[in-house]
């Protein structure tokens, strides 16, 4: 992929940007006219009431849902031009843990890391306190352990962009701290993270985006 220099973008241009985004779920327009920018090492926290479109925005950012309008770009290059490159640089952790009851925790994480070209599975399990659970099938894991195993995918194989949909749901304080440490390390390495949350999180220097501000005005939907 050729990185086209954008004349109107200064060199310190943000890494991941969206402009004029609108999203439709089914027949419902969820948000419209939304702009965001996440610089390298940056963090963006999505807040807003239920149904305001936090998950939808994360899905648009991941490329799962094509935006109804607007443009997403990475370093100024539109994502549309190379969706495969975008998939290679992102981790998306949604509400479901994507675990198979019959595979062991190590096998499961090994698979997801392997599909991205491999990574240090043992270290990733250790980061989230799952070393002891590694040889056991996922069906033995508790809900919190399953969540941690899903999050361990983040550190098992590196990717510069993390998209996390309410990652702390079901995590105890210790696991939340492990996640925050992982995010901090990721940002130190220049990675960026976008996450939605209902609980206040300890993310130094994070920007916040309130989805409630982009509710489509009446009459827009029709």
């Amino acid at each position: 992929m050729i990185r086209r220099p954008m004349s109107d973008n200064p060199p310190s241009s943000p890494d991941f940007t969206g402009t004029g985004l609108a999203c439709r779920r089914g027949e419902r327009l969820v948000f419209a006219g939304l702009d965001f920018a996440v610089p390298a090492s940056g963090a963006l926290v999505l807040v807003g009431p239920n149904g305001s479109g936090k998950s939808s925005l994360l899905r648009v950012m991941a490329g799962l849902t094509p935006p109804e309008a607007g443009r997403l770009a990475w370093d100024g290059v539109a994502l549309k031009e190379d969706p495969q490159a975008h998939r290679a640089r992102l981790h998306f952790i949604g509400h479901s843990d994507a675990l198979k009851p019959v595979l062991s925790a190590a096998e499961m994480l090994g698979f997801w890391a392997g599909m991205r070209g491999g990574g240090d599975v043992a270290a990733a399990l250790a980061r989230f306190g799952l070393s002891a659970a590694a040889p056991f099938p996922c069906r033995y894991l508790s809900a919190g352990q399953r969540r941690r195993l899903a999050l361990a995918r983040l550190v098992a194989s590196p990717a510069p962009l993390w998209l996390l949909d309410e990652p702390t749901t079901g995590l105890d304080t210790e696991a939340t701290a492990q996640l925050m440490a992982a995010i901090a390390a990721h940002r130190r390495d220049g990675g960026c993270v976008v996450l939605s949350t209902h609980a206040p999180l300890d993310l130094p220097g994070a920007a916040s985006l309130s989805l409630a501000d982009f509710r489509p005005r009446r009459g827009l939907a029709a």
Partner: peptide, 10 residues
């Protein structure tokens, strides 16, 4: 949720 994760792989 595996399918969603699979669809986001390179």
């Amino acid at each position: 949720g595996s399918l969603e994760a699979l669809s986001l792989l390179p």
